[in-house]
Simulated scan of single mutants.
Amino acid sequence: MAGNFLEIVELASGEIVLRRSGDEDNKPLLTLSFSSEAKSFLQGNHLGIAKVMFDAGLNEVSRQGESSARAEDLAEDRVLH
C-alpha cells in the first residue's frame, strides 16, 4: 500500500518536501524552502504554512481537473430523455 498517501517532511537541509509515503527512493513531488528571514518572521510556524501551501496547490489542481472534465462533457453531443 506504499505510495497511496502523501507526507510532508522537513529534510535535514531545511527544505520541506511533499512525497509519497513509503516511496523507496524518497523522490519529492514538490519542494519548498523558506529563507531564514521568512522562518524568523513566521516564528517557527513554517511547517504549518507549508502544509497550507501544499493543500492549496493540490486543491487547485483538483479544481482545474474537474473544470476540464466538465468542459469536455459539454463539448460532446448528449441526448437527454
Rank of each mutant, 00 (worst) to 15 (best):
G57E: 05
A75V: 04
F54Q: 09
L29A: 01
L32N: 07
L29F: 01
G44W: 09
F54Y: 13
G48F: 13
E72C: 04
A38W: 03
K39W: 10
A69T: 00
A69P: 02
A69K: 09
L6H: 07
A71K: 09
S13A: 11
V9I: 15
S21C: 14
K27V: 11
D25I: 08
V79C: 08
A69L: 12
F54P: 14
S35V: 00
F34W: 05
D25K: 10
L42N: 04
G3L: 09
V52Q: 13
I16K: 05
G65N: 14
S67W: 00
S13D: 13
S13L: 04
E60Q: 11
S62F: 09
A71M: 07
A69N: 01
A71Y: 00
L47Y: 10
L6K: 07
D73Q: 14
I8Y: 03
M53R: 12
I16S: 10
D25Y: 04
N59R: 10
S68V: 00
D73G: 09
E76L: 11
N59V: 03
A71I: 02
G22F: 07
I8D: 05
K27A: 07
L58D: 05
L74F: 10
L6D: 05
A12K: 15
M53P: 04
I16T: 04
V52K: 15
G57S: 08
E66K: 00
L47K: 15
D77N: 05
T31G: 07
A69I: 00
L32Q: 13
G14P: 05
G48R: 15
L74R: 09
M1Y: 12
F54N: 14
A38R: 11
I49W: 13
A2E: 13
A2L: 10
R78G: 00
E60N: 00
R70C: 01
D77V: 03
H46Y: 14
E72Y: 03
D25A: 01
D55M: 15
E72F: 08
G57L: 06
L58A: 08
S36P: 00
L32W: 07
A71V: 01
I16L: 05
A75W: 03
V52L: 15
L6T: 08
D77H: 01
H46A: 07
G65L: 14
E72V: 11
A12S: 12
I8S: 02
V17E: 14
R70I: 06
S68M: 08
L80S: 11
A50S: 12
V61P: 01
R20Q: 10
F34D: 08
G65Q: 01
L11T: 12
G22P: 06
V17G: 07
L11D: 12
R70T: 02
E76M: 13
L47N: 11
L74P: 02
G48L: 15
E76V: 08
D55Q: 13
N26W: 08
E15L: 10
D23R: 03
